[in-house]
Simulated assay, not measured.
Amino acid sequence: MAWIVIIASVISVWILSLFKLLLFSRFSFSKHFNHNCRALQKRNVLLVIAHPDDESMFFTPAINFLTSRGHNVQILCLSVGDADGKGHIRKQELFQACVALKVPMQQVKIVNHPDLQDGFGKVWNHSLLANIIEEEITIHCINMVITFDNYGVSGHCNHRDVHYGVCKVLYDTLQRDIEVWELVSNNILRKYSGPVDIWLSMLWPILHSNETMQCFVNEHPRRSYLAMAQHSSQWVWFRKLFVTLSSYTYVNTLRKIK
């Protein structure tokens, strides 16, 4: 009987959180999220990812927030995701997904370098990554970069290498006039808590008033499903389940890299 009560309570909280997000996010969360006024200034933002579909699986709350407020969002994908020999398909899927996320195709760059191939155990050279990322920063006058943290949400080695490549740009090439933010990797309970994680994420801006943490609630969660569905080669049952249950569909917590 106790287990039934617990399960019913969890389901109720999940549904309530989703209902609140869908109907009231723009108003109810505005005082808790993005309290740093600098984040509301128009900026040239570069999102650096490892594979096609990373943007839809992990970063849609940040993308939706930034594009809806007029920020110029550029996306740099550092591989075509050719681990299964579908790189040419996944490349087109990424362009389609970005259109769904209101990021124009001309603002998306996909790198297909022989030394940057998708796959576990594929080590990416951090200096090579830094050179590619720095070039994009220069071309597009970027003043804010968003990427993975050193765990990379799932622990994927390519995600982690992208993080270190961005850090190398920040530390070694004297790109100190840009802000770099990393997506915080949640523990497994928070990772699969869906919209419930919004309540926990609300605490971060309050507890970190030194402007080192920033949270983005997804004001258009349906867009996450639409974007991920464009990756038809990857849109299998367990990824559908992931997008439904993942907290990254509903909220992104970013930490500033100093």
Results as ranks from 00 to 15, higher is better:
Met1Val: 11
Ala97Gln: 05
Ser28Phe: 14
Arg69Val: 03
Gly165His: 07
Val153Gln: 07
Cys77His: 01
Asn143Pro: 09
Val196Pro: 01
Ser12Arg: 00
Gln107Val: 00
Gly85Ser: 11
Leu18Pro: 00
Phe120Cys: 04
Ser30Val: 10
Phe58Ala: 10
Asn158Glu: 10
Trp204Cys: 10
Lys191Glu: 10
Glu93Ala: 05
His231Thr: 12
His163Ala: 04
Asp177His: 15
His71Phe: 10
His35Tyr: 11
Ala227Pro: 05
Lys102Asn: 14
Asp53Trp: 03
Glu55Cys: 06
Tyr164Gln: 13
Ser233Phe: 03
Gly155Leu: 11
Thr60Ile: 13
His208Gly: 01
Asn186Thr: 09
Ile7Arg: 04
Ser246Asp: 01
Ile89Met: 13
Val169Ala: 12
Val243Ala: 03
Tyr248Arg: 10
Leu94Pro: 01
Val162Glu: 05
Leu16Pro: 00
Cys77Pro: 02
Ile139Ser: 13
Cys37Arg: 14
Leu128Trp: 01
Arg38His: 13
Ala83Arg: 11
Leu116Gln: 06
Val243Tyr: 02
Pro61Thr: 14
Gln106Lys: 13
Phe65His: 12
Arg190Thr: 04
Val108Gly: 02
Met144Pro: 00
Arg43Ser: 15
Glu136Val: 01
Pro195Lys: 03
Gln214Ile: 12
Val166Ala: 07
Asn36Leu: 12
Leu200Tyr: 13
His140Glu: 06
Tyr192Ala: 06
Ser185Met: 10
Tyr225Lys: 10
Gln96Glu: 12
Trp237Tyr: 01
Phe19Val: 12
His113Gly: 06
Gly119Phe: 10
Lys122Ser: 14
Val45Cys: 04
Ser12Tyr: 02
Leu16Ala: 14
Asn125Arg: 06
Trp3Cys: 02
Asp54Thr: 03
Ile178Phe: 03
Tyr192Gly: 08
His220Lys: 13
Arg69Lys: 09
Ser209Ala: 14
His220Gly: 01
Gln96Asp: 15
Leu21Glu: 07
Val45Pro: 01
Asn44Cys: 12
Ile7Leu: 15
Ser56Gln: 08
